[in-house]
Design a protein around this nucleic acid. Sequence first.
DNA 1: GATTTGTTCAAACAGTCGTTTTAGCATCGG
DNA 2: CCGATGCTAAAACGACTGTTTGAACAAATC
Lengths: 218, 218
Amino acid sequence: MTTRDRLVRVATKQFAAHGYRNVSVRDLCRAAGANVAAVNYHFGGKLGLYREVVGAAVDAIRTSSERMIFAAGDRPPVERLHRYVSAYLRTVARNGRAPDRARAAWVHQLMAHESMEPTPLAPWIAEQALMPRIRYLRALVAELMDARPTDRRVHRCTLSIQAQCLFYAAPNKFRDSAFPSWPPGSAELAAAADHIVEFSLAGIRHSAARPARRAARY
Amino acid sequence: MTTRDRLVRVATKQFAAHGYRNVSVRDLCRAAGANVAAVNYHFGGKLGLYREVVGAAVDAIRTSSERMIFAAGDRPPVERLHRYVSAYLRTVARNGRAPDRARAAWVHQLMAHESMEPTPLAPWIAEQALMPRIRYLRALVAELMDARPTDRRVHRCTLSIQAQCLFYAAPNKFRDSAFPSWPPGSAELAAAADHIVEFSLAGIRHSAARPARRAARY
DNA sequence: GATTTGTTCAAACAGTCGTTTTAGCATCGG
DNA sequence: CCGATGCTAAAACGACTGTTTGAACAAATC
C-alpha cells in the first residue's frame, strides 16, 4: 500500500477519534510509517489531508442516505421511519457484517468533533451530508402527522427523533458510564431502534392529535 | 477584582467554549490582563485552573439538581418529569432573569467538551454531577411505567428523554444550522419543554402498555 | 527602618506544532 | 549513459506550548 493510502487510513482513524486539532502530523506519520514531510507532499498540508478524510465521510453519508431513501421507496411512512432510525443506529455497530456496506462509526465521530469544534469545512459538511437527511426525516414526520413540513410541531418531533438517533451515534464518554451495558451489541441495537420508532410514533401521534398550542397546566 | 478571580472568570468562559486542550495559558492571561506566570503561581498549573473551573461547574449542577429534586417533592410524577425537563432546558437560555440562580450554558458546554475529549477529571465529574440526575430520572420513569428501575424498557425510555434534553443543552454547530430559528428564545424553550414532556409521556405510556419484546414486524 | 511575605513581571526554559528545505533515492524515457 | 520524474529522507525553520526562573515591587510585620 502506498504511503498516501496509509496516511489516509491512519488519519481517518485518528481524526475521527480525537478531532482535527488534537491530532499532530508527526503522530500520523509515525503511525503510518511515513516521513513528516509526506503529509505536505501528498496533501499540501494537514488541512489537505483532513479534507480528504472529510470528503470520504461526506460521500459515505450521502450515498448511504440516498441508498436508504431509494430502498425505502414509497413504502408506508411508518416503515420508512423504521428504516431511517435503523440505518442510523446500525452505523455505530462496530461489527457490521458487510464490510463494504458498513458505514462505520468513524463517520459520526468525525461529525461530532466537527460539530463541537468546527473547522472551515463545517458549513460544507452540513449542507452536503446532514441537510438531506434532515429534510427527508422532516418530510417523513410531516407525512406521519398529516401536517406541513414547516409546522412547528413537525420541527419539534423531527428534533426529538434526531436527538435520540444522535445520542446513539455520537461518541459520549458520560453516556457510556451512565447507561449500563454500553455500547450495545447488534441485537440490543436493533431492539433500541425498535424502541425509538415505537416511542417516537406514540409521541408523534399524540402531538398530531392536538393543535399546536402552549400547554399551561403545569 | 484580584488576578486570581479574573483568571477563573476568563478561564470559565474559554474552557467552556473551546475545551481544555484548545485553550492556551497565554490566551487566558492576555484576556485576564495577567502575566503568564500567574496561572502557575495561583493554581499550580493549567490543570489546577481547570480543576477550579470544573469544580464550580460540578457544584452548580449538583446543587441545582438537589434544589430541583427537593422542590419537586412528592408531587405527581408527570409534574416532576416536567420540572426535570424544564430545568434542563432552562440552563441553555442565555437570558436567565435571576442571575444568581442562572446555571448558565457554560456548564453544559464544559460537560460536552469533557464527554468528547475526556481529561483525567472525567470519571469524577460523571459520578458527582451526572449520575445523580440520571438516577433520579430513571426512578421517575420507572414510577411512570410502574416497572422496576432495572427494566430495560425503563433504561431505553430514560435514554430517549435524556437524549432530547441533551440535544438542547449541548452546543452543536450542525443543529444550529439544520433547525430553523435556533437558538430558541425563552418562550420557545418553554414550549419545547412542554413538547418533550408530552412527546415522551406518550412514548412512555406506549412502552409501558406492552411487555418488553422484540418487535419483528418491520 | 529593616525584614519578611504575597504578588507581579519580563525573560527564558525545553518541548511540540505545521511546514520548508535540501539532499538522496530509485525508476523511466531519451 | 543521461537527465527527468516521483517519492522519501533527515534536518532545520519559526511559531507556539506549559512551565520555571530571578528580579522587582508593595504592604505588612517585627
